[in-house]
Design a protein around this nucleic acid. Structure first.
Lengths: 216, 216
DNA sequence: TTTCTTATGTGACTTCCGTCACTTATTTTC
DNA sequence: GAAAATAAGTGACGGAAGTCACATAAGAAA
């Protein structure tokens, strides 16, 4: 038996052998290059999508072209957007874009429904992804409403665990739903405070605890 | 057989007789007065909660006391917050408060799980509530990030379908995650434009299409 | 009626943040 | 290596919205 799914989704290793087999046998593996639009307003979907490799950015775009990232689907997670349109016919206006080259496993609707009905574990897995997204979205609302940009920016820098990473000010702005100039200025402030060091398309984090203080 | 649930949740009338009976027999009906805190940070729950009468406001409070309403659970809907903590153990930091006197039906965990496994209709019902909340939260993020307060305020006034209704400026501010003074000022602008008429704790909508224009 | 409480009106000020308009570096590409 | 594209730095400005400080005003309670 293949072990594609359980290799990437350890939680699902607890499924019964029958259910695991059904899942592994039913899935269809697909690869897509970075930049692929996985879903956008009014797209349809043909199965339950689980992300094996890479990550997908889910974002909203405003009328005047500004963007904000709602959340990211990481390796080992499933895409609730496609789940949603699989189960209900709720409309949504978000866009999903592969940030890296990705590999996804698609579970056919019939298999998905069968597993939902027959496996408590699988059901819980699906629900947990939903629950997690809900919490994240609620946190996002809170941050966006109550927190100033400097704090959100500091948090964003901390969320990248690495001591240095490549990103443009423009991309940070899109991520936060702001504009480049504001981000550039605030980054410069952090640099003058010795928290980070700026390069072209590159940020080095020098003082994590200082950034943490700025985020709180 | 009782028909408490199906009277309030028409979608669930399509369940098989067996499942309907199980649902109706298992539920426990409870009433609570307006103002009751249904859940808050770190509260536990003992079942799947369905709202028969009244409505519950779900909100987030910031460190400095400002609030924003995330969404409302209306009559005929279920509370995904309690569902979430029933299924996963995801932490959440939102608070649910009864805005009116309410009547809720609580489905015991065992019944809930049984129905999830045995009824596609019931499962879809549960998922659809989730999907709906997700969309609403995503829309809220979009509004909060990209829309100015005047537009959100106009929309709030339109969302109250009535030509006049009782609400204080303070409550509107909490609803939008803003402060009273800002709301008062903008309401005055609308009044000067002839769109509304202000009274003490009262707003009369005079020109819905004008408000609609202000919201777009 | 008087007094309290709650709701609203407003001016003055500040700060954050988005917009515009350029400039100055780096890289790429021809 | 010159030209073009991309990234970043910055000053100037304006408007939106939060803060502070009172002034009314309308009900409720005593």
């Amino acid at each position: 038996m293949q072990k594609i799914i359980t290799d990437h989704f350890p939680e699902l290793d607890q499924l019964s052998e029958t259910n695991k087999k059904m899942l592994e046998d039913g899935i269809q593996i697909m690869k897509a290059p970075a930049g692929t639009v996985m879903f956008s307003e009014g797209s349809e979907c043909r199965g339950y999508v689980m992300l094996l490799e890479g990550n997908v950015r889910v974002q909203k775009t405003s009328e005047d072209g500004r963007e904000i990232v709602l959340y990211r689907v990481e390796e080992g997670e499933s895409c609730i957007m496609t789940t949603t349109c699989l189960i209900s016919d709720e409309e949504y206006g978000a866009e999903g874009i592969a940030e890296t080259d990705i590999t996804v496993a698609t579970v056919p609707p019939a298999t998905f429904n069968h597993l939902l009905g027959n496996s408590v574990k699988f059901r819980n897995f699906v629900f947990e992804v939903y629950a997690k997204r809900m919490s994240m979205l609620m946190m996002l609302v809170e941050e966006v409403v109550f927190k100033k940009l400097d704090r959100r920016l500091a948090q964003l820098l901390l969320d990248r665990k690495d001591a240095q990473f490549e990103i443009t000010h423009q991309d940070i702005a899109l991520e936060l739903g702001s504009v480049r100039e504001v981000v550039s200025r605030q980054l410069k402030v952090f640099e003058r405070q010795g928290l980070i060091k700026l390069g072209r398309g590159l940020i080095e984090v020098h003082d994590r605890s200082g950034l943490q203080a700025a985020a709180d």
